[in-house]
Design a protein around this nucleic acid. Sequence first.
DNA 1: GGGCACGGCCAC
DNA 2: AAACGTGGCCGTGCCC
Length: 607
Amino acid sequence: MQTVYFDIETADADELYTYGPSFCRLAGYAVDDGPVVLTTDMDELCAVLRDADRVVAHNAIAFDLAALEHWHGLDVGCLVDEGRVRDTLILARHNDPPLSGHTDDRRYNLDAIGKRLFSRGKDLSATGESTLKGLAREFGGYDRIPVDDSSYRKYLVRDVELLRAVAAYLSCDTYALREHCVVWRLTHISKHGFRVDVVEARRRLASQQKRVAVLQQRMVQVYGLPIGGKAPQRTKVGVIALERAFTDCGIEPPRTPKGALATGKDVLAALLQGHPCNESLVELVETLRALNGERSVTQTTLDHTGSDGRVHPSVDARQTTGRISVTKPGLTVMGKRDRANVLERSLLLPDEGEVLVAFDLSQVDARAIAAHCQDAAYVSAFEPGKDYHTEMAVELFGDPSRRSDAKPVTHATTYGMGARGLAASAGIGQAEAQALLNTLDSRFPGLARFKKQVRAEAERKHILWNAFGRPMRVEKGKEYTKAPAAIGQGTARDLMMEGILRLPGWLLPCLRAIVHDEIVLSVPTDRAEEAETAVLKALQFSFAVTGADVAVLVLADKSERGRDWADCYRSEKVTWPEVARDHREQLSCLDEHCTWHIERNETRSAA
DNA sequence: GGGCACGGCCAC
DNA sequence: AAACGTGGCCGTGCCC
């Protein structure tokens, strides 16, 4: 049994997939208790790793091994599938799960872990990450530090030694091993990257700049806001001017809970509703809304686009529930619900000669809860052929046609919403909301019992385990809302990961994005049907919690085949014709609310 | 100039 | 006693 501990110094980590073959600069490795060996020969390192029974590194799968696979041809999939890899970042999160709220990455760097596991001496901690940063500053970049620099080498040696010490404290169970396979599969998203419509992105940036300039000018002239900066309406002076503008309209300036001027869109909408005839207020609010509504997704996407014309987003399982974060750029926050920003996704394209297809799991959080709680009525709402929200409408109102009224209530079930919150989200009175919550509890007693039970368990242990064995930390005092939410999201997450694990290997390089209950693939046009069948087969299965009587079906839908990511949703969003790329290729259109043919429509309405 | 909190936008 | 969960990213302002 031979274990190899290793670490690699590289160029800027953000350029993992774009830098070039000299990305890996200096490697350090140690076999079992042996001394740390340094080398610039990555082939030598790969040979050592191939022969090892066990390979250990921090963030091995998403970073070090990924770099060796990408630039030096190491077969990482084989190492992972054979269970030979131990990624101490995955294990550290598994052994000591993060709290929600602050995904504090620094909690999981080697220094921090070392400090928690065996309080390490100050002499070592002082040399942590700052050494490397300092060297990068001194030499003008991570890729320009001389590989024979003694402090660079000393730093690497120390890191491998620290890694070895840390690894001894971290245990690994079957869930953690499965997680290694999950993370490796997800690295394909970063590795292959998502093609960006760079020309269109630049065009949109330019037109956004024009739009903002007009709005800002109005703010300056009418309300006396300061000139300059990216968001003068948010500066101190700007806020004072806005407060005066509200007062001039005869309106008390709205406030946030902390006393600041509130300019969020819900607040502004409520204000308008209260004073529909106040024309000067309407103009002020509309201008403010328009300015606040300007997002920088296009800029962020371009900022992260590499010389290959693609973004290579980071994919991490760092959230407390295990849900996947996709960042740099944040694909999980791109528009979809609102007509004003649904086209954000249209900047992302399939590979040449391919189409994009999105697949999403149907009500997977609720199905996860059903699998856990085993409430007969709740579980039966997910039987094949039934529509969950319609079933809920029948149970809550005795009226299947009130499907849309039932939707917000189901949200309340998983997230522990109270009467006030439900009333606000559903647009009903608090008494009515409370009555609905009571009905929910009486119609689904098993669900109510389950929620009570997980709250109690969280209060006792502060950690909950989902149906797959993922530990999730629950904040003290917040068990009432967070415990059921953690189970719903956490198990839903692993149902999606089960699907990822069931995907046939040829589809892994096709993965482009994951947004919680949705995955996006770029597939060759002539294999689209084959791919769709295979993905749906992987994502859909019957699932039972250990010891449970009744299994719950996990079901998935597929989107249209898209020429860009937004185009995938054209049949889901038929009332927004611009979602379809075909429509955007037309020179003009007849829909006066179209967000694409804006200039033409403006000309038309003026005429 | 980095770190952090806030308040704004957004997703599932 | 009541109870809306998990996040990313931007711009500003303030702190060290």
